[in-house]
Structure formats: structure tokens, C-alpha cells
Design a protein around this nucleic acid. Structure first.
Length: 491
RNA sequence: GGUCCCAUCGUCUAGUGGCCUAGGACGUCGGCCUCUCACGCCGAAAACGCGGGUUCGAGUCCCGCUGGGACCA
């Protein structure tokens, strides 16, 4: 069996798009599954729109996602000469011809066809030119494009798409398409086919928008004497109105960077993206890298497009709720060794990091993460909702203060008294703190909830959080006592 | 306009003629747990676009329609 070689070939005209990331992911998975080679090729022939910044964004995005490539990045712009050479070969072998028709002539013919409500296809005027006539025009210095000579018989181009199955396209429905512009620049169709030959690509896994071009590319392959690769077209990702998602229309939510900034774990994004248009018969949803590589197959790719369930303006959901939910699950499920690096990076960025968290305070740090993680959705949350555990300058939620501190004036007396009792504890552990609080409730004849909720808000500024006694241990005796005394002002 | 592709709960999907009184997940709602919130657990509402065939039997096969998408122009 031939070595599998696949590629991801983005145009560097913007940010790494989540649709592009999904294409890259499927290619990567297929390569890894088959011990193949994953090639990265930057299709930067549109010099006007291609930018260095964009290339950097794409490479960064792929690295962040963990989609490592084996060869490249290659740059299409450096291979234009090979594309021109291919056009020359096609010309020589009679598979292509020079077309001298002017834009005006073509426009007129098109308009005429449209007016007559007929389908317009290039009529092959220049295909019939004799060598004499061609020479004549060349001597006059007339500009020309190069067109591919599509077979004019009742046959068809057929191929077996690994996702869409057997596909046939009649020769008569394929016009003599342009492969080289009059300025000598190759068209995408030619460039990408030639590059795929150069890179010895065996499987082209790309968006369904490439399906229509495939017959033409197969024709190019064959005319150049190459065996076409296997094709697998994947469904597209659309918005809730079934339009293709784009940065222009939807903003940052379509970029990979946005997910990083919002505290998404890279693998959670991959896992989510993998499931957007791919599934296994057993309906499995969570996969480790190794498991996903093992489970992946081209045949599991959906034929229908899928929708990113994102509603702009939804304050609660900054992206598809399923993606957020998966991320939350990952945050809860990961081992500490897997989770800590992400939290460390975030806390560092927010100046909440203490190097002792990797040393003396490691045990404390990890157990603290462990008690707060089940209610956090993103890595960002460790620095926001988790702030009271790592710093003393946290905010008090207004609703929490109203609900838990201003609830009963007597808390003005209860809280300092509690602080005193907690301060006296020799061993500040769950059992002792709980005994102190509950005993005091009994003495005072108040419901435990009154004190417990008040303490939580006094110590963290929040109304919700971990069970109070583990929370107190995490915050620590001294800080807890200080915060309780300070909170009297808020009652 | 031409060519091609697609169509199951709001969303992601399972389903390849009988196991489907259509299953799972997210979201939504209700309950349990409980010091709050979350996790977890239990439960509810929620889908085969429409019309014809084929068949003893169709979500599953065929045709048409409708709808959506892509490519080319």
C-alpha cells in the first residue's frame, strides 16, 4: 500500500478559520491514523490579499491546536513556474490551447446567451484555430489565455468520493476552462492540481466546495499523465441561517484565536470540531487524541452541512453551547498534570501566579483547583471566579451581598464572633470548621444556611461556590478570619 | 441561469427494509442530592420537509415536489 500523504492548503488571507481548522484536523487525523504524512502548503498566490501576519496566525493556530505537520510549510507562490510549465506541457501535448478571444467578445456572447435564456459555456472558437491562424495571432502580439481542451464526446469523468460516493460529470457539462491567465499567471484549479502532484498527495480531504472542481482537476491530472488522488469532500459549517460562516459576517467567533482567548482548551475545540460533521456509529463524544485517531474514518463524515449553533448577542453563550459544555467537561475530567499548565498560563497572564504553586504550595494549589473546577466553563474562569482563592483584591457580587450579608442585621455580631472562634482553632480542617459553625448555629438558634451562606459571601464575594468547609480550608485560616472581620462593613 | 450535492428533535447526531412505540448528546424545563452554585443522578417536552410509488412491511429503496447549500457563469 502506498504511503498516505495528505495536505492542508489554506490561503493566508485572514485568520485561521474554524472551518479551516476542521479541515486541517480531519487531514491530520487521517494522516496519523494511517501513519501517513501531513503536508502544510500555504496557497499564497493572491499576493494582494496574502499577508505575513495571516501566515503567522495560521501556523500559530495549528500549533496551538496540536495539529503538527510533517512537511512544509511550502509556499505556492514559489512554485508558479512549475504551474506554467504544466500549462506548457498541456499545450504541447494538445490537451490545451491558446484562446485569443477578447473579454468584449466573450461578454457579448455571454450576454446573448443570457438574453436567449440559454446556458453559456465557452463555444470553443479558438479550439478550432489552425496552426497558421495561431501563429498569425501570436505574431500580432495578441494576448491569450490557455484553456484546457475538454473531451467533446458523450463520456464522463467519474470518481469515487470517499464521502459522497460515486460521482459522474458529463464531458459536455464541462467547458473548456481557463488554466492560465493572459498575464501568464496560473489559475487556482491548475496550481492546486500541480502542487498536489508535486507533493505526491494521495488523498485530498477538503471542503465540499471543492466538489465541483474535482472533475476538472482529474482531467488535468490525467492529461499530465498522473493518477488522480483519492478524494474525500467534507460537509461545510454554516451559521444558524445556513450561510457559510465568515469572519466578515460573524466576527471573531469563526477564528481559532477567539477560542483561545476565551479560555477554550485546544483539545476540547478539536473534539468539538471533529463532531461537527463526523460521528461514530456508537455515538461516542469524548475522545483523547489517541482515541480519536483510532476511531477516525472518512466514511463517518456527514454529507449534509452542519450548523454552528451560535447566536450573536447571546450573553450566556459566547459560542455554540455544546462547545462550551464540552470544554467544561474537559476542565472537570482532565488530570491535574494536564490541567495545571493551562491554568498556570492564565494566572500568570493575570498576575495571580505564584511560583510556589509548582513547589511548596503545589498540593494546596491542586486541591483548590479541584474544588472549584466543576463549576467553571473556561480556563479564563480560574482567574475570574477563582480570583478569591489566589488574591485578596476580589470583587463582591452585589446580588450576593444583598442576598447573604444584608439578609440579617445580626450578622454584624455573628461574623466577628465566628471569626474569633475560627481563629482559635488549632487545626483548621473540614471537621473542626464545620463543628464550630454548626455549634454556633445551634447556640444562636439560627438555621445553618444563614451563617454558611453569609460566610461564603464574606470570604469569596460570591453567592455560589464549593461546599463551605472545603472552601474555608482552601482560602486558609488567616485569610478567612480577616475576610470575615472585614465583611462586617457590608452587612 | 447551468451543473452537482444535501434533507431525522432548536443544535450536533445514531439509524444501510422488520430490533424505531425513532436512540444518544448539548440546550430548555421539572425533580433528587444539598449550606449556595455546579457536578452527579432521575424524569419531561422536542424530529423522520411534502406527495407518490416499490414492498407483507419504509426514517431506511425509487420518482416527483419543496427547501437548503456549493461550484460555474
Amino acid at each position: 500500500m502506498e504511503q498516505v500523504r495528505v495536505r492542508f492548503a489554506p490561503s493566508p488571507t485572514g485568520y485561521l478559520h474554524i472551518g479551516g481548522a476542521r479541515t486541517a484536523l480531519y487531514n491530520w487525523l487521517f494522516a496519523r491514523k494511517n501513519n501517513g504524512t501531513f503536508v502544510l502548503r500555504i496557497e499564497d498566490t493572491d499576493a494582494e490579499r496574502s499577508t505575513k501576519e495571516s501566515i503567522r496566525q495560521i501556523l500559530d493556530g495549528m500549533q496551538w491546536l496540536g495539529l503538527n505537520w510533517d512537511e512544509g510549510p511550502f509556499f505556492q507562490s514559489e512554485r508558479i513556474e512549475t504551474h506554467r510549465e504544466a500549462a506548457r506541457k498541456l499545450l504541447e501535448s494538445g490537451s490545451a490551447y491558446k484562446c485569443f478571444c477578447t473579454k468584449e467578445e466573450l461578454d457579448a456572447k455571454r450576454k446573448k446567451a443570457q438574453d436567449a435564456k440559454e446556458d453559456y459555456k465557452y463555444d470553443g472558437t479558438c479550439r478550432k484555430l489552425s496552426e497558421q491562424e495561431i501563429k498569425q495571432r501570436e505574431e500580432q502580439g495578441l494576448p491569450y489565455v490557455v484553456r484546457f481542451k475538454t473531451p467533446k464526446d458523450d463520456g464522463c469523468v467519474a470518481f469515487d468520493d470517499r464521502v459522497y460516493g460515486h460521482i459522474e460529470k458529463n464531458h459536455v457539462d464541462i467547458e473548456d476552462f481557463v488554466i492560465l491567465r493572459s498575464d501568464g499567471n496560473p489559475l487556482y484549479l491548475l496550481s492546486s492540481a500541480v502542487d498536489d502532484q508535486t507533493d505526491r498527495i494521495t488523498h485530498v480531504i477538503r471542503g465540499q466546495d471543492g466538489l465541483g472542481n474535482t472533475p476538472k482537476q482529474i482531467l488535468i491530472y490525467e492529461a499530465l499523465g498522473h493518477t488522480p488522488p483519492v478524494f474525500a469532500h467534507m460537509s461545510l459549517t454554516l451559521d444558524t441561517k445556513k450561510a457559510k460562516i465568515s469572519k466578515r459576517k460573524h466576527g471573531e467567533v469563526v477564528t481559532v484565536g477567539y477560542y483561545k482567548e476565551h479560555g477554550m482548551l485546544p483539545w476540547a475545540l478539536c473534539n468539538f470540531l471533529a463532531l461537527l460533521g463526523w460521528s461514530t456509529p456508537d455515538d461516542r463524544e469524548f475522545f483523547t487524541r489517541e482515541e480519536l485517531i483510532e476511531a477516525f474514518s472518512l466514511e463517518g463524515i456527514a454529507r449534509h452541512n452542519s450548523i454552528l449553533n451560535y447566536h450573536p448577542g447571546d450573553r450566556k453563550n459566547w459560542t455554540d453551547p455544546k462547545a462550551i459544555s464540552m470544554n467544561a467537561r474537559y476542565i472537570s475530567m482532565l488530570t491535574m498534570d494536564e490541567l495545571v499548565p493551562y491554568v498556570r498560563e492564565e494566572l500568570r497572564a493575570q498576575s495571580l501566579w505564584d511560583d510556589a504553586y509548582d513547589g511548596d504550595k503545589k498540593a494546596w494549589f491542586e486541591s483548590t483547583l479541584d474544588i472549584i473546577r466543576t463549576r467553571l466553563h473556561t480556563i479564563k474562569d480560574f482567574a475570574t471566579k477563582g480570583r478569591p482563592y489566589f488574591a485578596d483584591d476580589f470583587d463582591f457580587e452585589e446580588t450576593a451581598v444583598r442576598k447573604n450579608l444584608k439578609k440579617d442585621e445580626k450578622l454584624k455580631e455573628y461574623l466577628p464572633a465566628l471569626a474569633d472562634k475560627l481563629a482559635e482553632l488549632q487545626t483548621f480542617d473540614i471537621e473542626n470548621t464545620e463543628n464550630v459553625v454548626r455549634a454556633m448555629c445551634e447556640d444562636l438558634g439560627v438555621k445553618p444556611g444563614l451563617l454558611i451562606n453569609a460566610i461564603r459571601t464574606a470570604v469569596t464575594g460570591q453567592a455560589a461556590g464549593p461546599g463551605l468547609f472545603e472552601l474555608l480550608i482552601a482560602v486558609g485560616q488567616q485569610r478567612a478570619v480577616e475576610r470575615l472581620r472585614k465583611a462586617v462593613d457590608l452587612v
